[in-house]
Nucleic acid binder design. Structure first.
Length: 799
RNA sequence: GCGGAGGUGGCGGAAUUGGCAGACGCGCAGGUCUCAGAAGCCUGUGCCGCGAGGUAUGAGGGUUCAACUCCCUCCCUCCGCACCA
């Protein structure tokens, strides 16, 4: 006999909704708990990744509610983005229609899972009641100089036909379609996230409850590195080439200088020289190479000599200036001093082109003594040689001394370099937030007045999937009068990157219907920061960095009084099938819906929590899910065999379980929490349970399998919803064991066990153990050297 | 290359932080019930060995009465970043 999950789940989902059980009330007087998961893109179907993410969050939210917290647990949709445009073209419909349909389907599936969302707070970023606040925020940023427009070489995906942020370029390819990214000069809108770089880096220290991995990734992305900018003057000229290095200790070994092919000085240097043609041909060739090709490490480093010489400022040596593809304009000053002996890239390049080299750091014990011996650069620490007054110093010490000396003498300047670039947010796309700007031939760039927001997306834009923004083709959108001088002007036709939308949605959930600002300060200060944020590791950099940036911006605006939006972060592992990520192309997708109809949502929830700890990858197992279903049926049958009064042994197990499960949930060890519940059930099958014990088991099951627990709770004749009951308390007195099993070892090997009353004294134990018959064969004829006693645990006899 | 995480039965995974390795589940084997099967329920299940016992947490070494846990050397897997000067 199996329990009827279908009716039960529908029944309780209806009941929760009717009673409004998951409404978050800021005036309840209880301590607040904001539980948030990364909201989904509405593709139409939820996948196992969503199920896992949201189940982990749901257990947390439900548990906290039972623990007496007023829980805010909202859900919404990150609804702008390119897939909607592609789907609209494919199905000959509109992105809005397609998106809202997907949202409806997805909501049905989320509701079927029994998640405890406060649906009254739902937001969709494609709704103008939401995106008008994107525009509002943008205008505020514009007023403060944080949003600005400039022409720049930008990352361009030829397949998506749009620009990409640096953060969206993965290994030189588009993060979405992996097409090789090209460089293109365009007028684009940027957000000055670099203005926040120090705070974004420093405040990582506040995030004590974030995974270390994420902190490292953010820190690397911001990429602070300290070094020296050294000024190389050109021979017989006043022109100076600043060069950035983190290895000032190698300056005496700099035997040539290299500029990036895009370096602005290049043209000036070679104009009219005999090498002009050759150099230009090289630059031309490099510019045609995609980033992927150029950054692949196995490609041979290429370059040309400019015919120009520079002077090494520390020893006045004349050294050649080259141009090479291995120097990047985006990093440092776009120029390097090359030290072939102590940098592998310089070493390979120097070998290839027969450039000179000189050792300036030597290991006191081993390593190459002459450049002829060298087969690779010596990049380890050592002692300075050939370095003038710095000879004999350990190089790490010399690094600082040389830097200081350079600053004093004006040879160089100690600088801090950052990897973080400003955030490019313009997208030549339709399905996004229109950037609220107007171009007037008289007044220039004019912001749309606040009272004219939102700038709504026109419904009738043409989608061809071809280049250029579709908005540019809608006359009634583009043509507008200038807000200042009232003469005909034109609107900005780019839209915002969707990461803009998701950078503040957690604030909107605090007051989703507020219509005077993006969020109501009072509500935000009540609910924020998010106490627990849960989502995929794939957002470790972009989304989290941008959200942190926005939060700091709002703080500077006086709209918030804290620095960091997310107190605790949990990144859940992926769901795999046969060792691989579930994906359409692999054809190994397990559809949550099919599992729900076969076993019910509770079984799916239970399995996905039990099969692995939240942070590790989870291998989907069809047989495992049967096991979870079997367990629920096993619990279900307990109600038919209840005793009037259960044994104390079961009561003891119960209280131990209450303690364990509570602690495990707090620590996100759901798999062992469930294992503990299974042990309790096994104990009940051995010795029987009474109504009280069974009811407490039901309450502990409630966060995991809420529908199932509600039904049993009701069948046991209890009043009120199970999920609003307080979490059961354990009796510490029942946790104290009367008897303990003490392990007896001889030379560290288990030889016997003895059951003794708890807290038996050392001496008693010793004599008891030494008279143990079982130990005779091990002790015979051997003198006892020592006896180690760990009370209540073990005795180890050393012979 | 740099940074991070990890390696435990046939499988997913436990181990209160140095104290019974393998909890819990899957799988497998046997039993019970049944005309029979399914479902239940019960028992067993790291490996070698009939047994006493031996042996085992990627490999090797060390510290310790005692090591999955701490230290050293090496191997492998996964993830992130990457001509970053």
């Amino acid at each position: 006999m199996q329990y009827n999950f279908k009716d039960i789940e529908e029944k309780w989902q209806r009941s929760w909704q009717e009673k409004g059980i998951f409404k978050a009330d800021p005036r309840s007087g209880k301590p607040k708990f904001y539980c948030l998961e990364m909201f989904p893109y509405p593709s139409g179907k939820i996948h196992m990744g969503h199920v896992r993410n949201y189940t982990i969050a749901d257990v947390t939210a439900r548990f906290k509610a039972m623990r007496g917290f007023e829980v805010l647990h909202p859900m919404g949709f990150d609804a702008f983005g390119q897939p909607a445009e592609n789907a609209a073209i494919k199905n000959n419909t509109k992105p809005s229609i397609w998106t809202y349909k997907c949202i409806d389907w997805m909501k049905i599936e989320l509701k079927k899972m029994g998640f405890s969302y406060d649906w009254e707070r739902e937001v969709s970023t494609c709704d103008d009641t939401y995106y008008r606040w994107n525009q509002w925020i943008f205008l505020k940023m514009f007023e403060r100089g944080i949003a600005y427009k400039r022409s720049s070489s930008v990352n361009w995906c030829p397949s998506c036909r749009t620009t990409l942020a640096n953060e969206e370029v993965i290994e030189g390819g588009c993060w979405r379609c992996h097409t090789a990214v090209e460089q293109k000069d365009l007028e684009q809108w940027f957000l000055k996230i670099t203005g926040y770089k120090e705070r974004l880096l420093d405040d990582l220290k506040q995030l004590k409850y974030w995974p270390g991995k994420v902190l490292t990734m953010q820190s690397n992305w911001i990429g602070k590195s300290r070094g020296v900018e050294i000024f190389f003057r050109l021979k017989d000229s006043d022109t100076v080439i600043p060069v950035f290095t983190t290895r000032a200790d190698t300056i005496f070994g700099a035997t040539y200088v290299v500029l990036a092919p895009e370096h602005p000085l290049v043209k000036k240097l070679i104009k009219g020289t005999s090498r002009e043609d050759e150099v230009f041909r090289f630059i031309e060739k490099v510019s045609k190479e995609s980033k992927v090709v150029r950054s692949s490490s196995d490609v041979k480093k290429e370059g040309v000599f400019t015919g120009v010489y520079a002077v090494n400022p520390v020893n006045n040596e004349t050294i050649p200036v080259w141009i090479a593809d291995y120097v990047l304009m985006e990093y440092g000053s776009g120029a390097i001093m090359a030290v072939p002996t102590h940098d592998q890239r310089d070493f390979l390049f120097a070998k290839e082109h027969g450039l000179p080299m000189r050792i300036v750091i030597q290991s006191p014990v081993c390593g190459p003594q002459s450049t002829e011996e060298m087969t690779e650069a010596y990049e380890d620490d050592g002692i300075q040689v050939n370095s003038g007054q710095f000879d004999g110093l350990p190089n790490q010490e010399a690094k600082n001394k040389i830097a200081d000396w350079m600053e004093q003498t004006g040879i160089g300047k100690i600088v801090t370099h950052w990897r973080l670039r400003d955030w490019l947010i313009s997208r030549q796309r339709y399905w996004g937030t229109p950037i609220p700007m107007i171009y007037c031939s008289k007044c220039g760039v004019v912001p749309v007045p606040y009272e004219d927001l939102p700038v709504k997306l026109p419904e009738n834009a043409p989608f061809t999937g071809e280049g250029g923004s579709p908005l540019g083709k809608v006359d009634e959108f583009v043509k507008v009068n200038c807000p200042k001088c009232k003469t005909p002007a034109r609107r900005e036709t780019d839209t915002m990157a969707t990461f803009f939308d998701s950078s503040w949605y957690f604030l909107r959930f605090c007051s989703p219907k507020f219509d005077e600002a993006p969020f109501e300060a009072k509500e935000a200060s009540h609910w924020m920061p998010v106490d627990q944020y849960i989502g995929g590791i794939e957002h470790a950099i972009l989304h989290l960095l941008y959200s942190r940036f926005f939060t700091k911006f709002f703080k500077d605006m006086g709209m918030l009084d804290f620095d960091e939006p997310f107190l605790r972060l949990l990144t859940q592992g992926m769901v795999l099938k046969d060792g691989e990520v579930m994906s359409k192309s692999r054809g190994n997708i397990v559809d949550p819906d099919s599992i729900i109809s076969k076993y019910g949502a509770d079984t799916l929830r239970l399995f996905i929590l039990f099969a692995a700890p939240p942070e590790t990858e989870l291998e989907w197992d069809d047989r495992g899910i049967e096991g979870s279903f079997k367990f629920l049926n096993r619990v279900w049958r307990i109600q038919d065999n209840l005793k009037d009064k259960a044994d104390e042994t079961v009561a003891r197990v119960l209280h131990k379980t209450i303690k364990k499960v509570g602690e495990d949930i707090e620590n996100f060890k759901f798999n062992t929490a469930i294992a503990g519940l299974m042990e309790l059930v096994n104990a009940i099958y051995q010795s029987g349970a009474d109504k009280e014990i069974f009811s407490k088991l039901i309450l502990m099951l409630c966060p995991f399998v809420p529908h199932f627990a509600e039904e049993l709770w009701e069948l046991m004749g209890n009043k009120g919803s199970a999920c609003v009951q307080p979490w059961p308390e354990f009796d510490p007195a029942l946790l104290i064991e009367e008897n303990v099993t003490v392990i007896i070892q001889v030379n560290g090997k288990l030889r016997s066990k003895v059951i003794v009353p708890a807290e038996t004294g050392e001496e008693v134990l010793k004599s008891l153990v030494l008279s143990d018959e079982k130990l005779k064969p091990w002790l015979q004829g051997k003198p006892v050297k020592s006896v180690i006693v760990v009370p209540n645990k073990l005795v180890n006899i050393v012979v």
